[in-house]
């Protein structure tokens, strides 16, 4: 049987969850024995070149680009996993959800104390730029998500165990340390 194919991405996240993937340390050598990576920042493949088995999503959806990428993942991956708080419930970026988008933009580009040099009083609006969503959405409010790995970031061991369990089809071990968060 050919190796399962994994893809990863970071949407509105901080790449902390990807750092945590790297935190599996030397097991990464084992991992590349177990799986093949496709689209992912880890190997810098920018576009899907084939159908994948597992997609790891870091971060929620804050703009139209995030939504397109997420939908692309859903299309190409058999199993999608929300990795970390931002993907699961919006996380820190979702702190703007209580504030109207217009106010956010005006604070960031016009009225904020640290705004300097925006003499033309312009809020960036180039058609090339992704469009902000009215709020930050967790991934499962946009597409179907199959599994959720909580944590900020999820512990490397949790990510490792989850991937191994998925690939081998064994039941996942969930010891107390893995599911306590304080």
């Amino acid at each position: 049987m050919s190796k399962p194919i994994v893809a990863t991405t970071s949407l509105a996240g901080c790449f902390g969850c990807h750092m945590s993937v790297l935190d599996i340390d030397d097991r990464i050598l084992e991992l590349i024995e177990l799986v093949e990576f496709n689209k992912s920042p880890i190997n810098d493949i920018k576009k899907f070149t084939k159908k994948c088995d597992i997609g790891l999503i870091e971060g929620g959806c804050a703009n139209s680009e995030n939504v397109h990428v997420l939908k692309d993942f859903r299309e190409h991956c058999k199993i999608l996993i929300s990795l970390g708080e931002c993907a699961i419930m919006g996380g820190l970026p979702a702190m703007r959800n209580g504030i109207p988008v217009r106010e956010c933009l005006e604070e960031a580009y016009l009225n904020g104390l640290t705004v300097a040099g925006n003499t033309g009083k312009i809020i960036p609006n180039d058609p090339e730029l992704p469009m902000l969503l009215d709020k930050v959405y967790p991934c499962h409010e946009v597409v179907k998500i199959d599994y959720f790995l909580p944590g900020c970031p999820p512990r490397a061991d949790l990510i490792w165990d989850a991937l191994v369990a998925l690939i081998t089809g064994d039941e996942m071990k969930l010891p107390y340390e893995v599911i306590k968060f304080d």
Binding site: S64, R102, L132, L133, Y137
Partner: peptide, 22 residues
Amino acid sequence: SGFDLNAAVLESCEATNRIPNI
């Protein structure tokens, strides 16, 4: 999921005078 991208970008497009290009 019921998610509607057109509706979700409406507010920011109004704020920045953009035409939504989905």
